[in-house]
């Protein structure tokens, strides 16, 4: 005969085991490789099990910013599957935010198409922040991608920096050439404490040129690419902790644009 204490201990152990299994499942990530050609192979890190909604997240510095992978794990527990294509390693480029803008558009499109073709998600969104918005804009400009009967439902850009050159005082901003060639919906979030917020109407008007439905919104109390900064303010730290909620809420909005 087992005592009640034994049963309590057993239940406790099973609970711990279950939690550990769940935690492990949430942390589990799958590494795969996509061969673009004889010379270029792109690693894709996938977080989470197949889900209804998938996110293709282009990171500025793949693997360098733990916050993106941490946020991905939290998004998995909200029912998403997240794909991180490592666009830099294939070209032996260092993890500098500026390098992500050097990735050829064709590779970006191949990666997006591959994930669209292989994912079982019913809908997929592109996600990027800061300079990593450049490959997203280039991908969205691809005509073939636009013509696909696609699960791709749009792009969420968090404090995007898609300037061709730094904006000159007294002149309209100039963006990379592919800006305004997209048809998919785009939601742009910008920090309230950055001069870039004043360019949002111009950016939205430019992005709409080929038919994209575009919405912009401000994130209160934060500067541009707040979640990647070394010198975060308390507000920015708090917003970074809630990055999964910010992404989740705004993907809902994006789906309804």
């Amino acid at each position: 005969m087992q005592t009640p204490a034994f049963h309590r201990s057993l239940a406790y152990c099973m609970g711990v085991l279950l939690l550990a299994t769940l935690a492990f499942a949430a942390r589990a990530e799958i590494h795969s490789t996509l061969e673009i050609n004889d010379e270029i192979e792109i690693d894709i890190v996938t977080f989470g099990e197949p889900a209804k909604t998938g996110i293709i997240w282009f990171a500025c510095r793949q693997g360098e910013d733990a916050i993106e992978f941490e946020t991905a794990r939290r998004l998995v527990s909200r029912g998403y599957q997240i794909y991180f294509p490592d666009m830099l390693s294939a070209h032996f480029l260092s993890s500098l935010p500026s390098n992500i803008a050097r990735i050829p558009a064709a590779e970006v499109v191949t990666v997006i198409r591959h994930i669209i073709d292989t994912s079982t998600a019913e809908r997929l969104f592109l996600l990027a922040g800061a300079r990593a918005a450049v490959p997203v804009i280039r991908g969205l400009a691809d005509k073939n991608l636009q013509q696909m009967d696609s699960k791709l439902k749009g792009a969420l850009l968090i404090t995007p920096r898609i300037y061709k050159t730094a904006p000159d005082p007294g002149s309209e901003p100039v963006y990379i050439d592919e800006t305004g060639l997209s048809v998919h919906p785009i939601l742009v979030l910008e920090g309230e404490r950055t001069p870039n917020r004043w360019g949002l109407p111009h950016l939205a008007a430019t992005l709409k040129k080929s038919g994209s439905r575009v919405q912009t919104d401000l994130i209160n109390g934060v500067r541009g690419y707040f979640y990647l900064r070394d010198n975060q303010t308390p507000t920015e730290m708090e917003m970074t902790r809630q990055l999964d909620t910010l992404i989740h809420d705004n993907l809902q909005k994006l789906g309804a644009i």
Binding site: A166, P167, P169, G170, S171, P195, N196, W198, G199
Partner: peptide, 29 residues
């Protein structure tokens, strides 16, 4: 923000140097 919109300012600091007649002759970001 209406003044900075008129001056097309999208970065900080954004500087303008005006001559004595009030014309912008140089900018500096």
């Amino acid at each position: 923000g209406s003044t900075l919109n008129r001056w097309k300012v999208f970065a900080a600091p954004a500087n303008f140097i005006l001559d004595k007649r009030g014309k912008i002759i140089f900018t500096l970001y």
